[in-house]
Simulated scan of single mutants.
Amino acid sequence: MTEYKFLEPYKFLHKDITLKNRVVIPPMTETMGFHDGSVSDAELSYYGTHTGGVGMFITAVANVNDLGKGFEGELSVADDRFIPGLRKLAHAIQQDGTRAVLQIFSAGRMTNSQVLRGQQPVSASAVAALRAGSETPRALSTEEVYATIADFGQAVRRAILAGFDGVEIHGANTYLIQQFFSPHSNQRTDEFGGSVEKRMTFALDIIREVNRVVDEYATKPFIIGYRISPEEIEKPGITFEDTLKFIDVLKDQPLDYLHVSMGSVWRKSLNNPSITTPLNETIKAHLAGKMPLIVVGDLQTPADVEKAATAFDLVAIGRQSLREPQWVQKVEHHDEQAIRYAISPDDLDELGIKPPFLQILIALSGENGIPLTTAKDVNQDAANARIDHYLSGGK
């Protein structure tokens, strides 16, 4: 009888919080919220269906202010009026001891004036993304940057009042925090731009403000995580060398985990063929045991997850958790042969996958049938990669 490492509890290093196992559901874009950012019944059903087995469940992104909205159907934590719905969401997730973490962000330039109801997108600098249809944002003033940092803090206050167990600061997937770190999107000359160290300032100030708010409002230990993307394809863009410099600073910040957003746990550099070691292995070495690392990407079978759990601290299963909400429970009950690796159209209501979410997955699959079919189908590999990228917040 196999005893899996990923089923072992995990206690955070600096907080009196223990996860019942090392399996995490990562943030996945589901676009099932109301137009104003309120939590919908469809979302409550979806989260309630997919939670319970894992140690921690991180929500889809929630914007911290109106200009931070990236797409329709996105959660918002920008106002106190959202707290009652978010409280229902936290409660839906916290079944059987699963920890609920709210991911908070601002889209920055990765949105458009239609989504923003006529407002121009904002970013670190007035530089459009190198993607078809991208609008040129306006640069946030220094005062607006400080106001945005405060908005992240207020978002955390609301998450605490809503009963979440923690927040994840979304510094990945080309959104605003990453835009401040990127030499492509950040051409500022104030204290938030210039050298790689100055381009870290926005993120570090947000971490500082988040911790200040937690100290003021939290009445029990509260998880603070941070998510990164280790490279950019833009030229100039974030290099892996830049990221390692950032991690060398992040590891000494008051954070409880680092979450690396990639399509494969074992991915190597997209830009530098001389890097022959998986990026996550190098990142873990730089963390030097000071905080745990969550890895994600192409983990489907128990063997896949165990291999990652042996090498890293916490493992996240995204696409596979959509197919099989009872993934952990079936492993625990030694019923691995019953794990579902495909979805039938007849399964969609059972899985809580509603039309907005489904249409995204169909479009990304590149095929006419229901996507998320067997991940071992070679013809589906490219579609799965696109799906993983979008679900993790990429556009």
Results as ranks from 00 to 15, higher is better:
Met1His: 11
Phe6Met: 15
Glu8Thr: 14
Phe12Leu: 07
Phe12Ile: 03
Leu13Glu: 08
His14Phe: 12
Asp36Gln: 00
Asp36Leu: 01
Ser40Arg: 03
Glu43Leu: 14
Gly48Ala: 08
His50Thr: 02
Phe57Gly: 00
Asp66Ile: 02
Leu67Tyr: 09
Gly73Met: 03
Glu74Trp: 00
Glu74Lys: 03
Arg81Met: 10
His91Glu: 14
Asp96Ile: 07
Arg109Lys: 13
Arg109His: 14
Arg117Thr: 12
Gln119Lys: 13
Val122Arg: 04
Ala126Leu: 11
Val127Arg: 06
Gly133Trp: 11
Ala139Pro: 02
Ser141Glu: 12
Ala147Arg: 12
Val156Ser: 07
Arg157Gly: 03
Arg158Trp: 05
Arg158Lys: 06
Ile160Met: 11
Glu168Phe: 05
Gly171Glu: 01
Ala172Asn: 06
Thr174Ile: 10
Phe180Ile: 02
Phe181Met: 14
Ser182Gly: 06
Asp190Glu: 06
Glu191Lys: 04
Phe192Asp: 00
Gly194Cys: 11
Ala203Val: 05
Ile206Cys: 13
Ile206Met: 11
Ile207Thr: 01
Ile207Pro: 09
Val214Glu: 01
Glu216Trp: 02
Tyr217Ser: 11
Lys220Asp: 10
Pro221Lys: 03
Phe222Leu: 07
Ser229Gln: 05
Ile233Glu: 13
Glu234Met: 05
Lys235Trp: 10
Ile238Pro: 08
Glu241Thr: 13
Lys245Asp: 13
Gln253Asn: 05
Leu255Asn: 04
Tyr257Thr: 03
Val260Ser: 04
Gly263Thr: 10
Val265Phe: 02
Trp266Lys: 04
Pro273Leu: 05
Ile275Ser: 04
Glu281Trp: 01
Glu281Gln: 13
Leu287Thr: 04
Gly289Leu: 07
Val295Lys: 09
Val296Asn: 10
Gly297Phe: 06
Gly297His: 05
Glu306Asn: 12
Arg340Phe: 02
Arg340Gln: 15
Ala342Glu: 15
Asp346Gly: 07
Glu350Pro: 00
Gly352Leu: 03
Pro355Asp: 02
Ala363Phe: 03
Glu367His: 07
Thr373Lys: 14
Thr374Leu: 10
Thr374Asn: 15
Asn379Gln: 13
Ala385Glu: 15
Tyr390Asp: 03
Gly393Ser: 10
Gly393Trp: 06
